[in-house]
Design a protein around this nucleic acid. Structure first.
Lengths: 122, 122
DNA sequence: ATCGATGCAAACTGTTTGCAAGCGG
DNA sequence: CCGCTTGCAAACAGTTTGCATCGAT
């Protein structure tokens, strides 16, 4: 199976884009922690690892990671984006607490099956 | 059964707020069209009906309508809010086309049941 | 050497807020 | 009349973009 790096490299190559140290660092940190994250949190995480990458580059790279299929953008009733890993993770749903905003992930195969069914029908 | 106006009036009264002509107009137009809408679309709709209400008032009133339970805020992978009517509408899910962004609403009772089940369990 | 990539700051979009003036109960 | 409400413009947050410079192949 292809590693995350391989997938990203292939995507970049197919678009004639470059695999830079900044892109590598962002890929690494985006997958270093299993939960959801926002662009700002990733920036802080990078700083804590002594990597100074500008916000603009983070946004540009996250967008590439989404296009390559490695990350997904999810929005939880807030106005800014959260990202979550696709690579190595099953499709799932989220439960968002109306009081504290806490997010619980769950996989319910019966719901998955019905979702597929509705999608096909429409 | 209480009308939308009654529900809104009661909510406002309970919070010692006033039922102004602006709030009435926004309530009317928010329910004049059955599909989802954004704040800007509502502004245009109001202008077309010769009602000049500022954006600030629209946002402030939409927030009250959500708190009163008449509208729900939904976000479809975009960074800005869409609103949909709760009053007189069953709980449902949305299918968003990845290509054109078109939104299809559907009610699937088996999914509703499983959603309830998961919510209780967590 | 050529193009794409980066950092910076400015631009942008949707939304919120402070304030002075207006109006509903 | 008192206090909530309004409109305006400025403030905000998250994100995007233009541009000069840098760097990978």
């Amino acid at each position: 199976m292809l590693s995350k790096e391989d997938v990203f490299r292939e995507y970049l190559e197919s678009k004639k884009l470059k695999f830079t140290v900044e892109r590598q660092a962002i890929l690494d940190r985006a997958f270093a922690n299993p939960k959801h994250f926002e662009a700002d949190e990733l920036l802080i995480d990078l700083r804590q690892n002594r990597l100074k990458i500008s916000k603009a580059t983070i946004y540009r790279t996250l967008s590439l990671l989404v296009k390559s299929g490695l990350l997904r953008e999810v929005i939880f009733g807030e106005r800014h984006a959260h990202y979550e890993q696709v690579y190595g993770h099953e499709h799932h749903d989220h439960l968002v607490c109306n009081n504290c905003g806490k997010i619980i992930e769950f996989v319910e195969h019966r719901i998955e099956r019905l979702q597929e069914e509705v999608c096909k029908k429409k």
